[in-house]
């Protein structure tokens, strides 16, 4: 068997025919997206991604979407399944009805079919300086030491796989083009909480700005849809608290007015 048939096994006998409506966008031939239906013989063991691979390999090779790992680690295959932001490799056909809809992640620019722009997240990561800004030079033995308790403080936030489901779940992302967004802010807090890091004040230039945490109204859907239980909404509220305390500290007697 060749690689293609391994990627999308034939459903064979007993397969359930599922009608999959895909919101397609082919910029060379249409100015707005349009729906296209496929009748796909599905195994109950399949995920939505398997069904898409079946379409691509056997029904319509022109369908475009991103995927890589097929195990909810790479964060590439996010899309709206029945209107819900979902990793298509993590959604099983057996849990879905005989007719499903698949659309590109909401609130993001659509490049083609299910492929969306990622610059919202990538620009956000740069804007919030989502990297370690060392508090001090490493000790003489060239290692930063960290206790298990210090690690535990930020570890859940490191689970982010940049899948952008949280952007699709957040109406604020659509309402304010400048809003940094849930994942980038959560990853800013990931470094703020790191005992080795000293960059929280620097990050506040963005995170405490009009495009930062104060744009969040705590709808909380970002955390609900997160496949890695990162809780960006919680991280953002913690940053609101830190930002408020910083504001107060600047105005307290003896505080720095910078």
């Amino acid at each position: 068997m060749n690689a293609v048939s391994q990627a999308s096994p034939s459903a064979g006998q007993g397969a359930r025919i599922v009608t999959i409506d895909v919101l397609r966008y082919r910029p060379e031939q249409e100015s707005t997206p349009s729906w296209q239906s496929y009748a796909v013989p599905c195994c109950e063991e399949w995920t939505v991604l398997d069904a898409l691979n079946h379409i691509k390999d056997h029904l319509d090779g022109s369908l475009s979407y991103r995927w890589s790992c097929h195990m909810a680690v790479c964060g590439s295959c996010g899309m709206m399944v029945n209107g819900n932001p979902t990793l298509s490799c993590k959604a099983f056909m057996r849990d879905l009805p005989d007719r499903i809809s698949i659309a590109p992640l909401a609130n993001l620019g659509v490049i083609r079919d299910l492929v969306v722009q990622q610059n919202r997240l990538l620009d956000g990561l740069l804007a919030v300086k989502s990297w370690l800004i060392p508090r001090e030079l490493p000790p003489r033995d060239d290692q930063y030491r960290q206790t298990p308790a210090q690690l535990a403080k930020y570890r859940p936030l490191t689970m982010c796989i940049n899948c952008m489901l949280c952007y699709a779940a957040c109406p604020q992302v659509a309402l304010n083009e400048g809003y940094v967004g849930p994942a980038a802010l959560a990853l800013a807090q990931r470094y703020n909480l790191d005992s080795r890091d000293g960059g929280a004040l620097e990050r506040m230039q963005t995170t405490a700005s009009d495009d930062g945490v104060w744009e969040c109204t705590f709808i909380g859907e970002c955390s609900e849809v997160c496949p890695k239980h990162v809780d960006p909404a919680g991280a953002i509220q913690q940053m609101k608290l830190a930002s408020s305390l910083q504001w107060l500290a600047q105005r307290a007697p003896g505080g720095s007015s910078s």
Binding site: P33, A106, V110, I219, E221
Partner: peptide
């Protein structure tokens, strides 16, 4: 220029029960 930018409908908060609860 050919990227399609979706618009959020004014009734977005009716689209999901969690939005309505919010």
């Amino acid at each position: 220029a050919k990227v399609h930018y979706p618009t959020l409908p004014g009734n977005w908060w009716l689209k999901r029960p969690s939005y309505l609860r919010y």
